[in-house]
Computed example of a mutant assay.
Amino acid sequence: MAISDFSLNTINGQTIPLSELSGRVLLLCNTASECGFTKQYAALERLHQRYQGEGLSVIGFPCNQFGQQEPGQPVDIQQFCQTRYGVSFLLSEKIDVNGHNAHPLWHYLTEHKPGILGSKAIKWNFTKFLISREGVIIGRYGPLTSPEALQGRIEKLLQEKSS
């Protein structure tokens, strides 16, 4: 299996095979609208606006597994993200990132890039995975790592040519 073997359903109900994003750098983040880290939506959007033309795709994955901080329906989530933070990057349908019902992509991510002390579980909202153009998981970053802190790594990956 590889990242490009997975699909996601968008918040609008469309299915997108990640193979359509092959050759792009991906920044994947589990999100929530009522979290202390929700302000990271704005930073994710800034990265999206600045680098989408160079090959970056930011994807938010709304998740209600941590403190029930994403209780809304898809239309509520999308409206909140757009009106509050101007989000124009891709949002998936609401998913689980841990447990038996975890989205297969997130199961893959956590299996292949464990967190601190080898833990595979996502600990909280706004955990981020950075993926190279070749589909290699470059890093896993907890919610305390701001999207801005990844800018240098993103720029480096964008400068590398896809093989």
Rank of each mutant, 00 (worst) to 15 (best):
A2I: 02
Q40M: 03
F61C: 13
Q49W: 00
L26K: 10
Q49N: 14
G55N: 09
S92E: 11
F37S: 05
Q159N: 13
F37C: 05
V87A: 11
G115A: 03
S132R: 09
R46Y: 01
N30F: 04
L56I: 06
V25E: 13
N101E: 15
P17W: 00
H107I: 00
Q40D: 08
K39F: 10
L158A: 05
F66V: 08
Y51H: 15
V58P: 07
E155K: 12
W106A: 04
H107M: 00
D96K: 03
S132H: 09
L105A: 03
R24H: 14
P147I: 10
V136D: 14
L150I: 07
C63H: 05
I131T: 07
G139V: 00
I154H: 03
S22Q: 15
I131K: 10
R24T: 09
F61E: 12
P114K: 05
I3T: 08
Y141C: 02
K123G: 10
L8Q: 08
E155S: 08
G53C: 07
L27M: 05
C81Q: 05
L109K: 09
I16R: 13
V136I: 13
Q73T: 10
K39G: 13
G135E: 08
A32C: 09
Q79E: 15
G23Q: 12
L8W: 03
V25Y: 06
N64A: 03
R133K: 15
E45T: 10
L8F: 12
I95D: 11
T127R: 02
L27T: 06
R84G: 00
E70M: 04
P104W: 01
P147S: 13
V136T: 14
P114F: 05
L157P: 03
L109Q: 09
L44N: 07
Q69K: 09
S4N: 13
C81M: 09
Q69Y: 11
R46T: 14
S146E: 15
N12K: 13
F66E: 05
F89E: 13
Y51Q: 01
G36I: 03
T83D: 13
S57I: 06
T31P: 00
G118N: 12
Q159R: 15
A32T: 06
L56C: 08
I95F: 06
L144S: 14
L44F: 06
A121C: 02
Y41R: 03
L56N: 12
F66A: 14
